[in-house]
Simulated assay, not measured.
Amino acid sequence: MSTVEVVDEEGPGRVERRRNRKVLDILTATADVLAERGYHQTNLDEIAERLDLTKASLYHYFPSKDELVTACLEWVGKLVNDRLMATAQNREGTASERLTALIRVQLDSIVREHPQMAQLFLQPLDWPESYRERTKELRKEHDEAFRTVIRDGIASGEFVVEDESTAVHCLHGAMNYVPVWFRAKRKKDYETMYETTAASLLRLFRPPAP
């Protein structure tokens, strides 16, 4: 399966920028349908209808369902993973501050920016085998961003955990459940949620107070 490259929206020409915006619209709609329907129930007709496009127009951008789904997974997965890894690799601040920043990126991604991510990567879908391996790889990249900071905290003595994997699974489980219970009434509710959730989850890694 080939991967369709999404060009930076600040491209040199109007036609290129317009095409890129259309591609992003298609990928977003595809992610929505996949999250709602699963792979086998996703069809190009519904995606085209949501975008008010003809099916022929959709084929102009993506020649097949497999190419569209592949591009969608790569777009969502890499977009979030790149943000997380850039945050993890920023060595400024303590391990607690860096982990707090990672938690904020993750929550912002699954609650506000890319809520489809929780379904596409964190919940089991009816993926064909060819897609399962790639989703596993993207989940592993995602997981490694957090483990990088947690290991730094353990090495410095800032974090104390009995089992790294158990702590990481608990962390992810708590973060990924936030979209189920969180409902924002005002814009500042997001900031409050980020702060309180991060503060609570850091207790998984900090040693108990004497």
Results as ranks from 00 to 15, higher is better:
R98A: 07
E10W: 09
C170Q: 15
S2V: 12
P179Q: 06
D108V: 07
D8R: 11
L99E: 01
W181Q: 06
Y190C: 02
V160T: 14
P210D: 12
F62G: 01
P124C: 08
C170N: 12
G38C: 06
D66W: 01
C72A: 12
T148D: 08
R98E: 04
G157D: 08
D143E: 14
P128E: 09
D25C: 04
K22E: 14
A118Q: 08
K78R: 14
T42F: 04
L68A: 05
A167S: 13
W75D: 05
I110K: 00
D45L: 15
E162Y: 11
P208M: 04
D163H: 14
A209T: 15
M193A: 11
V149Q: 04
L138V: 10
T28D: 13
R139Y: 07
A71I: 03
F62R: 00
L44C: 09
T30C: 09
R37T: 06
F159D: 02
Y131T: 04
G13K: 08
A48F: 03
V105M: 02
T196N: 10
C72D: 02
A209V: 13
G153Q: 03
K185R: 15
D126V: 05
R21L: 11
S2I: 13
A101N: 06
R83D: 14
A199Q: 12
H172C: 00
A199L: 09
A86I: 06
N81V: 04
L201M: 10
R17H: 03
P179F: 01
Y177Q: 08
S2R: 15
V105H: 02
T166A: 14
V69A: 02
V178G: 00
V33D: 01
A31M: 06
G11F: 09
R104E: 09
L34A: 05
R134M: 10
P128H: 10
N90H: 09
R91G: 12
R151M: 10
E133C: 05
A118T: 15
K136N: 15
A95L: 05
Y39L: 06
S130R: 12
A95F: 02
W181E: 10
Y61M: 06
K187Y: 10
Q119I: 01
G153Y: 02
L73Q: 01
R21Q: 14
R98Y: 02
E5D: 13
E137V: 08
V105K: 02
V33P: 00
E137P: 00
R203G: 06
R37D: 07
T30H: 02
I47L: 03
E10A: 15
M117S: 08
T30V: 10
E49G: 11
E129K: 09
R14Q: 12
R183P: 00
R104Y: 03
V23E: 08
L125A: 14
G153A: 04
E164Q: 10
E141Y: 05
E129H: 10
W181H: 07
G11A: 14
A184G: 07
S96C: 09
V111S: 00
E133L: 15
E46H: 08
E141R: 15
R206Q: 14
K140P: 00
L27D: 01
P207K: 06
L102A: 02
E164V: 11
K22W: 00
H172D: 07
N81D: 10
V69C: 04
I154D: 01
T54L: 05
Q89H: 10
R91T: 13
M85A: 11
T196M: 12
R206V: 11
R50D: 08
W127Q: 05
V160N: 07
E113R: 11
